[in-house]
Each structure stands twice: as C-alpha cells, then as structure tokens.
C-alpha cells in the first residue's frame, strides 16, 4: 500500500473515530462540580483529532504524503503475527501448566520457530532463562505466578 492510500484510510478512520468519541463523551456532560465537566477535555481532543485527520486526508489527496515510508515486509509481518499467536497460546497454557513449565515450552518453541540452530543450545538456554526468570520473579520480587493444575500436583 502506498503512503497516499495509508494516509487517506487512516485519516478517514480517525475522523469517524473522533466523531464517535465526541458523541460518546456527551453523556458525561453536566456531571461534576462546574460547567467544565468531565466531557470538556475529551470533546476538545475529539475536535482536534477530527481537524487533524481531515488535514491528513487533504494533504494526501494533494499528493503531499511522506514518500520515504518503509514498505511492509510481508514474510516478516506473517512471522510477527505467528509470534503473537504463540504468545497468546503461551498465556492460555500458563493457566493450566503453571508458569515454569509453560515458559520452558514457550521459549523452546519460539527459538525453534525463529530458526535457532543446535538442539542442545536451545535446550540449555531455555532452561537457564526459565530458571533465572522464575527465581527472580518468584523468590526475589515475590510476584505470585500462576501455578496451574499441573504444577500443584507436584
């Protein structure tokens, strides 16, 4: 997608968004101690956002868009998407397997997915990082980690 089209679509989306915010914030009118209630600031910002997004579109139509934007690197984008997917599965898995076990699996899978070579290297770094992070968060910072069903059995 070229920068002109990006600017026009972002501008259009933001102008709709700012209108929605303006209308939604209307419900806060008259609450609070003075006539400058909780609605004033969000509505003022919504107006400013509306104006700037219209300007963005006008600029783009006139051909004044930034030309030096980096293009999206498609295979890379897909790779980023998959890492987000892996991390969501990790967060769900953590509820069942507990922090430690799920972290070991997460790190190993991520390193394998990103193409780290050497089975032993992956296993050692996975275990070392998991132990260190677990020790720091659980024992030093005393942050309660999800134990999960599995960890409780032991």
């Amino acid at each position: 997608m070229n920068s002109k089209r990006i600017d026009i679509s972002v501008g259009a989306a933001l102008s709709v968004f700012s209108t929605a915010v303006f209308l939604y914030a209307n419900q806060y009118k008259g609450k609070g101690v003075s006539e400058y209630g909780p609605n004033v600031f969000p509505q003022a910002m919504a107006i400013l956002l509306f104006i700037t997004s219209i300007l963005l579109m006008v600029n783009a139509v006139r051909g004044n868009s930034q030309t030096d934007l980096e293009g999206i690197h498609l295979t890379g984008l897909i790779r980023s998407g998959i890492t987000v997917g892996i991390s969501i599965i990790y967060l769900i898995l953590m509820q069942f397997l507990g922090f430690f076990l799920s972290t070991v699996i997460f790190l190993y899978v991520m390193m394998t997915y990103l193409g780290q070579k050497g089975q032993l290297k992956r296993i050692i770094s996975t275990l070392a990082v998991s132990v260190v992070i677990y020790a720091i968060f659980n024992n030093f910072l005393k942050i309660p980690m999800p134990e999960g069903l599995f960890q409780r059995l032991f």
Partner: peptide
Amino acid sequence: FISAIFGLLIATIGFDPLSGV
C-alpha cells in the same frame, strides 16, 4: 500531533480526576 492527541484521548480513560466520573 495526531499521535499526541490520540494519546491524550487514551489518557482520559478511567475516573475523571476532578469529578470522579
């Protein structure tokens, strides 16, 4: 400026500091 205004809008989420709404 669009980024900044967007950020200012995000900052209004939650209790209003003056009226508690």
